[in-house]
Design a protein around this nucleic acid. Structure first.
Lengths: 205, 205
DNA sequence: TCCTCGATGTATCGGGACGATACATTGCGT
DNA sequence: ACGCAATGTATCGTCCCGATACATCGAGGA
């Protein structure tokens, strides 16, 4: 998830880790932040994988037994996406399997970078997400119906509030889907007919 | 957080790990589950700390070099809260510091076991939570106002939906607070006057 | 009768994410 | 001139999650 987000942000322009974190927090809706304890290890992994590169060749290399007053000497590091990273990003952007929408966190990131995503892929992801959330809603509904009278006031309120939130999310997704369908039929018309006979519902891995 | 939840559930009756997980998922609102990868290590920690006990003395002890056909021989384990565990639970229940409401997960658990919590403590936690979520909302609002025209359709929708969710949570909390205040003034009247001059807003650790 | 399937049940492993923390530099107000 | 807030890089310990393996048992159909 972090990998996707970082690639998406660096796709626009190179950045410091610090700036990356701020933009990340903003793009993620502000409520879900990201800590340095996740960010820097992720950057390290991605650098090792060749997806991004740094201007500073290596912050911790080549200092045999130099001047002791050189205690920290921390240099600023600018991260840049590589050609391989861009390739990886566009590969990830094309994914439409359950992993793209089952996890709410990843789904949020996908949504934040939807302008890099083809319209038919967008539609598949939105519909997948709606299916997932609808299933959550049904589980919640039946659970609530089963245990309604055994619950005290606060537990009941918690369940009720949760159910309402999920319900609102389904409606929100439905609006997004409607808009997407309208836009798609207006522009290309091939990828998204208003109502194809059924569609397969399979996930192309 | 898990510790609190486990103590709260075992407070009612002893249980298997499996049952514990189911009840946990139900009490947490259904949408946030809990995995065995967290549950069993937590149980192990709490057992080591003397907060809970098992009927099986030790699943992995005393088998010198017995019969080889005894390959797995996994026994069922029932977990029971100890006197020390109950003590710890009631100590945790009394906590009103920021840790009780800053993290949404812990707050949810606290709410689920509110019937073990005194009315004035409930009120402090609910108000603390509302303050936290209100701050989130303000951050979100200003962020949205600052970046509104730079955002594409989907990013904008994401922010809007997030803001609405937070807004609904604030209103929900306000209703809970109102109800709690009404109830409190009807029963004891000492812990929660309808509107004290200001209250201190400090957190008693 | 046997056999599979789903529920019940215990447990570990690797990978990550988080909060706290430390350290270093820059710029701005006063 | 000084200090304080923002910028900036990085690690550590702790915890949690998804996946996985293993094991038992009841009910239902071949």
């Amino acid at each position: 998830m972090l990998e996707f987000a970082i690639l998406g942000l660096l796709h626009r322009s190179p950045m410091h880790g610090y700036e990356l974190r701020k933009q990340l927090a903003e793009v993620l809706g502000g409520m879900r932040s990201i800590s340095y304890g996740s960010l820097y290890p992720a950057l390290k992994r991605m650098r090792a994988a060749g997806l991004i590169s740094t201007d500073e060749p290596d912050p911790h290399a080549l200092l045999p037994a130099d001047a002791p007053p050189l205690t920290g000497r921390r240099g600023k590091v600018v991260y840049t996406i590589t050609a391989e990273g861009k390739e990886r990003f566009h590969e990830l952007v094309g994914q439409t399997g359950p992993e793209a929408y089952d996890d709410g966190g990843l789904f949020g990131v996908r949504l934040a970078f939807f302008r890099h995503t083809a319209s038919d892929v967008r539609l598949r992801i939105l519909e997948g997400r709606r299916r997932t959330v609808e299933q959550q809603r049904e589980g919640l509904r039946s659970s609530l119906a089963r245990t309604r009278e055994r619950l005290d006031h606060y537990t009941l309120e918690l369940q009720r509030h949760g159910l309402e939130s999920v319900d609102r999310e389904v409606r929100w997704l439905s609006e997004l889907i409607d808009t997407e369908r309208r836009e798609a039929s207006g522009t290309s018309g091939a990828a998204a007919l208003p109502d194809p006979p059924d569609g397969d519902r399979s996930n192309p891995a």
